[in-house]
Structures are given as C-alpha cells and as structure tokens.
Amino acid sequence: MKPRARHSLLTTEGMSRSEVESLFARARVHARGLESGRSVRALEGKVVANLFFEASTRTRLSFERAAKALGADVLNFTAQASSVVKGETLMDTVRNVEAMGVAALVIRHSASGAAHLAARHVRCAVVNAGDGTHAHPSQALLDAFTLHERWGSLDGKTVLILGDVLHSRVARSNLFCLTTLGAHVVFAGPPTLMPAGLEEMGGRLAPSLEAALAEADAVMVLRVQGERQTAGYLPSVREYARLYGLSAERAARLRPGAVVMHPGPVNRGVELAPEVADGPANVILAQVSHGVAVRMAILEACA
C-alpha cells in the first residue's frame, strides 16, 4: 500500500478558514448520519487508539463513540492501568502502540506539548485530545461548530471567554479557531488567571465583566478548579463564584439570544449558576452531541 500523507490535528493555531469549514461540512454530514443511524463507515478495518495519560471521561467517550460510528476498532488506554506508573515514557508508549498497527493515536496528556512530542516520533496520525494548558483543538472545533450551526456564520460575532484563562487549553484553542472564523474574542476573569500576550494572539481584555457581558453574543464559561485556591491564585472558590461566576443576575445582562457554553464538566454554583446552566440560553448538551460529529470529521480527515 502506498504510504499516504499523514494528517495530525495538534492545535487550531495556524488552521486556515477553509480547513475549518471543510471539517464543519463533514461534521454536518456525520451529525445527520448519527441522527438517522446510518453513519459513514469511513474507518472500517482501521484501528484508533485512545491514549489517555490524564483522566477524562467525556472526551474519551466522545472520541470512542466517533471512531466506532466510523467503523473503526478502538483501543483504550488509561494511564492508571498502564505501565506509565512503572516508568515507561510517553515516547515508549506511543511507539509501542503505533507498532500494533494503528491508524491514529488520540492523545490526552497533562503536559503541554505532549501531542507534538508524540507526533514527532510516530508515522501514524496524532489527534491532540488535550495537552496540559496548551491546546484542545477538538473541543474548540466543536464549540465553533455549535456556534456556526446556530448563527450560520461567526463573522463579526463577539465571544466572551470567562474564567481561568491561564490554565485553559480550551481558551487558547478557541481563541485561534474563533478568530480564524471572523469572530472577536474577549477575555474576562481574575487578573491572577489572565496570561500575558492575549492581545498579541488576537484577543482583547474586557475592561469589566459587566461591559463584556453586555456586548457578548456567546459566553464560554471555563471550569475553575479548587487547586487554584490552594496555589494562591484565588482567595477562595466562594469569592470566585461571587466575583466572576455567571449568576442569574449576570446572565440577565446578556443580549437577547446570546448563548452560554461550557466545555464540561460544570461546577454548578461556582463558575455557572444552576439556573443558567439549565436555562434557555445554554447550548451545553448541543456541544456534547456536536462533539461526536466533529470528532468523526477529525478522525476521518486524519486516520
């Protein structure tokens, strides 16, 4: 068999608008296929390996569902049950799994750059399912797809990304993806959790949360983790909820028709009030179902 050009998805940085839009076109086909129960069996006879060196349930299940819907065989690997604890390196693991004849490695790892490192040392496709605080391209693509399906176009829309941007791979990948599609990206959150250089990367810092809410067409709420309190970034999760949480009162300042997104899992009552998470503006479950279709499009393009 003639070796084909390898495609990996490691980051949304540098993706062209036409690349993103052609993935969306395929995702739309897959979404209809999933609804009707007649999926495109594009990966029949191929093997996709999910290598999850960092715990994740939703993303792994979503990739597994996507690969199986395309007809692929799926290998699942989680770090807890593996030889990683015995000192086997990331490199050893990816080379070994590749040698089993896989078409694509889907990698989740707690270190930024792990997917790039793996991709440099294997010939099969690598799909980055989240590396440290660097990138989560499939999440960003499904977020953008969700907005695209709702609005028809992202051109000129304003998306507010709210919360712990410093530690968020979702925020970074969305920044690149959304701006490529013509949207404006605004950031808000505690100053201790705002990294340097967001303007140079194409974003804007909100002068205040209230002002940012008033101009947003969508709010992407990031998960805030309890470790930020112990590491000294925040006085308390409680205070975070009061100053930066998307409460019902804050959500009421949104424009009519503005949507609320969250990459999940939601800390209800912390970054997102329960009534907002379940309210009419939320598209969180649409994100989840679009996730499978978008990941099908990604695997189909890469594997």
């Binding site: 750059g113 250089g197 967001l198």
Partner: peptide, 8 residues
C-alpha cells in the same frame, strides 16, 4: 506571548 501560546 510565547509562554501563553505554548501553554507553559
């Protein structure tokens, strides 16, 4: 910017 971009 470089650290932010690379998620470091």
């Amino acid at each position: 910017t470089q650290a932010t971009r690379l998620g470091l």
